[in-house]
Write a protein that binds this DNA or RNA. Structure first.
Lengths: 419, 419
DNA sequence: CCCATTTAATTCAACCACTGAACAAATAGT
DNA sequence: ACTATTTGTTCAGTGGTTGAATTAAATGGG
């Protein structure tokens, strides 16, 4: 996919771009900023030099650039034992660039602002049934939210460096929403419709200010952001459909054309019930929201995802046998599908997100059972199954986080933006 | 998604190494060599400069290093129209470093030598039933083959820069064969057993001279090598078991622990027949060699993979209805499993390899049918299904190719090897 | 046939960014 | 106060790219 910095595959084949003179500094800016971002306590220049193998002189020069560009700030030295000149700690600036995350979903709109360090500095959710609205109307309301987020960022001294919009549907490489069935959208050109709304239009140093992405993908990124420990996992978003975000080595895997993650249509039983996709026995017909609600005796409720999950969870914790059986059946089907994925990709962690996060107490046991039974390598390296750390905010936060993550990965773009 | 670039994680691999002074040249060596390797006709220095954005001066300097290190050779200018001094073409050297590929399988041993340009310069297959032999005995025979390959390389003026051994089983990161069920191997430490056999022991500039890898993985690499066009595909190896090699963006995906590709145990029907892995209804119970032979009325034949495939193909082309039905059923099951994979990973190509390559004429239709029916994005971007270009040699050639590919990706290692 | 034109490759001074060592700054211990 | 110790900066030195000028080798027109 790409130009200079594409998502790197397992082999570090850096043959993408030529290395010009200035690339050296460009790369070292990224190296040093990366260390500052991933360190658990503010590191000193000397510590970074020791870690990276660069000279202290080089690190100092690089850090000067980063501070001048408002990406890094110095903090007072933390009390330390032993002799020697005290180190000045370095951390990501809390008043530099920030990312704007936006989300359009079936029953709410959301916006949030995340600073370089990953802290959520502003967050607003507005509930409303979006289905009766046209894309233009829905986006108009989104622009309002974005405006308020921008104002909040200004008050906080933050500069919005880009925005990411999460949509529950298939999005192509240009931000065109090919299909968002639950919103009733088809071929909606979001960037074109938003043209003229300042924070969401144009390009920032060659990068479009607004990126549109699938909700499940961004939710997976949000989880990566919230729990930085695990580098490879499968994030399953249980909503009306079932999406999966695949994170490999700390990077989202998007597939050959960017439409990876359609876990909902992985076959569970080839002779099973007919699915709206045309296949038979897809996971969605067993563990989709409609299927679970139907099995639990709540058919036809037509609830938004989180309400449905909440109600199921209430019933299950009250001991309702039908609800529990429904969840057990769904968890088993989910386990079968996920076992196939884990066998194929050899992942060690499965995260239950979206509506499944709420239902995790009842879904986890059957999922884990199937994984233990069906995953070939489960015997000597067990697969862990856990609920998502962030709840439904995962996608907005993940989207905003993706913006700042891009800056951290390639700070030269931000530093050279004025020229 | 949005656009061309990918959201990169902070923990991504390319911030791992600091960029020191010499890295500049190191990277540009890789960039220039990469262009020479991937160009369809020998490019000139000027063309490389124009392509990469480097100066002609820099390209000349880099090319001088590459020629001095016997990685690149000049060829006579090809007749060209128009005025101007004729360009001197550059191509990968045919007398520089080469890769040694080795394979141990149930019924044969193989060795081959591949030069930098990817040409197979030596190839030897020795048929023998390996199952009654101990690992030590089997490896002793392999060492003989390797010795002859080395002699052949010497005669051709090639220097072996490393070796890769393909094994039909699970291999860990250190070359330990955890389990090779069809060979009857368990926890066989191949590098230790080969210690003392010169081309297969020790390290070459930090990289072990011998790499051991799963046969299915290497077969996928061989296919990538043979048909360089497709960058992302699923390579399915139908042998006694069913393995898959996943190639994403031109690189093999190995999973979190290196055990990806267990397609044989992806569930096809959760209530299906019990599988030797402990699960139920795994793909292997429908499309494994034993299952197909049984359904075709050849149960208990205990044939080596390619013989079995050959005999089935003969029966099917003779019109035998039982064989055809067996292949159709296997293809359908395979299609169901692969549809799940394609939905999840969004791949656009599926390659039928190993024994399946021979059976492709009968397997392809049902596989394609299932994919069309079950893959969500099939409507607007069809998935192509084809037989492997290389037959059973895929794995040896892929292994040897992996050695030279590593040199092309990081030529500085080879160039600096003497010091 | 000679010379202008064109494209390829090399040479060389300039420059950018890293290197290594020396030095200044700031603290703890004696 | 003095030394040991660690941090951060300054500065000459160097590797490698840059850009322009130069040489090399062909075509084509007069």
């Amino acid at each position: 996919m790409g130009t200079v910095w594409h998502c790197q595959a397992v082999t570090s084949a850096n043959i993408a771009g030529a290395v010009r003179q200035g690339s050296l500094r460009e790369l070292n800016l990224a190296v040093v900023l990366g260390r500052i971002a991933t360190a658990d306590r503010p590191p000193s220049r000397a510590a970074i030099a020791a870690d990276t193998g660069l000279t202290r002189a080089t690190v100092s020069a690089v850090v000067d650039d980063l501070i001048a560009g408002r990406l890094v700030a110095e903090v007072d030295p933390e009390p330390r034992t032993g002799a020697g000149r005290p180190a000045r700690g370095l951390r990501l600036a809390a008043d530099g660039p920030a990312g704007l995350g936006l989300e359009i979903n079936v029953d709410y709109l959301a916006a949030c602002v995340v600073d370089l360090a990953g802290a959520v500095r502003h967050h607003e959710v507005r509930r409303a049934d979006l289905r009766p609205l046209s894309p233009t109307e829905a986006l108009a309301r989104l622009v309002e939210l974005a405006g308020r987020a921008r104002a909040a960022a200004d008050r906080l001294g933050l500069t919005l460096a880009g925005a990411t919009l999460a949509v529950p549907g298939l999005v192509d490489a240009h931000g065109l929403v090919r299909l968002a069935p639950n919103l009733g959208w088809r071929d909606v050109d979001v960037p074109a419709l938003l043209a003229g709304h300042p924070p969401l239009t144009g390009t920032v140093d060659g990068v479009p200010a607004l990126t549109v992405d699938n909700e499940a993908n961004l939710a997976a990124l949000g989880e990566l952001h919230a729990v930085p420990g695990t580098a490879s996992f499968l994030h399953v978003s249980g909503e009306i459909g079932i999406g999966a975000g695949i994170v490999l080595d700390g990077a989202l895997f998007r597939g050959a054309r960017g439409w990876s993650g359609e876990l909902g249509h992985v076959p569970v039983d080839p002779a099973g019930p007919r699915c709206r996709c045309g296949g038979r026995g897809c996971l969605e017909t067993y563990a989709g929201q409609e299927a679970i609600l139907g099995a639990a005796g709540l058919a036809g409720a037509d609830l938004p995802a989180d309400t449905a999950a909440r109600r199921l969870a209430d019933l299950a914790s009250a001991g309702d046998p039908q609800a529990r059986a429904a969840l057990h059946a769904a968890g088993t089907a989910l386990g079968v599908a996920v076992a196939g994925v884990v066998n194929l990709l050899d992942l060690d962690t499965v995260v239950l997100g979206g509506g499944y996060a709420t239902l995790a107490p009842w879904l986890r046991p059957p999922v884990a059972t199937e994984l233990t039974a069906r995953v070939l390598t489960a015997a000597w390296s067990p697969v862990s199954v856990r609920a998502a750390a962030l709840g439904p905010e995962s996608a907005v936060v993940g989207g905003a986080g993706a913006v700042v993550r891009r800056i951290v990965a390639r700070p030269s773009g931000w530093l050279g933006r004025r020229e």
